[in-house]
Design a protein around this nucleic acid. Sequence first.
DNA 1: TATTGTTATACTCTATAACTATA
DNA 2: TATAGTTATAGAGTATAACAATA
Lengths: 165, 165
Amino acid sequence: MTKPQSSLDESQLRAYFALMDVAGLLKHGVEQQLRDVGDLSFVQFQLLARLALNSETGSERMTDLADGVVYSRSALTYQAGLLEKAGLVTRAPSPDDERGVTVTVTDAGRERIAAVLPGHAEVIRQQLFEPLSDQQSEALADLLSPVRDHMRAAPPRSAAPRRKR
Amino acid sequence: MTKPQSSLDESQLRAYFALMDVAGLLKHGVEQQLRDVGDLSFVQFQLLARLALNSETGSERMTDLADGVVYSRSALTYQAGLLEKAGLVTRAPSPDDERGVTVTVTDAGRERIAAVLPGHAEVIRQQLFEPLSDQQSEALADLLSPVRDHMRAAPPRSAAPRRKR
DNA sequence: TATTGTTATACTCTATAACTATA
DNA sequence: TATAGTTATAGAGTATAACAATA
């Protein structure tokens, strides 16, 4: 009968507000650099980086991209359309599943990422990591990685209400 | 002559991506709750919470609100207009400086925050803090608070190019 | 029938620049 | 002259729902 202990303690509040604040400011800073140097929005950078850096083949299906980066399918269709129009990706029907669409980075896409990356890293180092030691950066990664996994495991994703089952 | 060591090490990359990912997912979850329960966007919640919770008087000047919460003055004017139209804040000329505008939470605004807060905390606890011990939450706050201070001290704010000097 | 992706639509939010008024 | 705030405008991004095609 105890109610769900519904407020946060002091350090949780501090952590929450600091997290949202830091992420907001950092995103803002990074967006300026991406826009100025590479004419990319943050989502576009995320999509391109995922294909160019995190994918063996440079390809991924629309659904997987949407699940990993974006919150609705239509938003991804929109962004993929922009990237394709800019010549940074191509879209083609998936070989195995005719319903699917496979997105692939082009050489121009890889070049764009390469052009943007150094300045991107520079902004992040200056704004995020300057006040942190190497050890602290590692601690931060170790704290946040499990949280991300937890959030992705219990997903309030809007796109796919229930992935399986 | 050494170039600015322009890429990040492995744990820095992990920390950066985890941070942006966690903040993005958390914001998304929180926005749904705020919209459903209180008909508030995240910025509106931030503004209202700052006035109702972090201000002795329940009042603050537009410029200070813009610096603390939002990135451009016009965006704040827009949001303050919405909150005023909803009856959650009032706007009046500042007593000491006729140019200024003082924003004040109304009783309805405080009620709205109170109505939203428990569910808000619940989402945060479930999504952010469930995988963390109390000690880890504190460590997270201790890591991120100095970063926020650092970012606010060396501001790439778009609104006020140079606050003093 | 369920899933993949697209489209049409409507809406929210933001930034830029020009403007007014006060200091 | 500089600062505080507003307005007009235009653009970017998103979500919802309806839809077509394939599994």
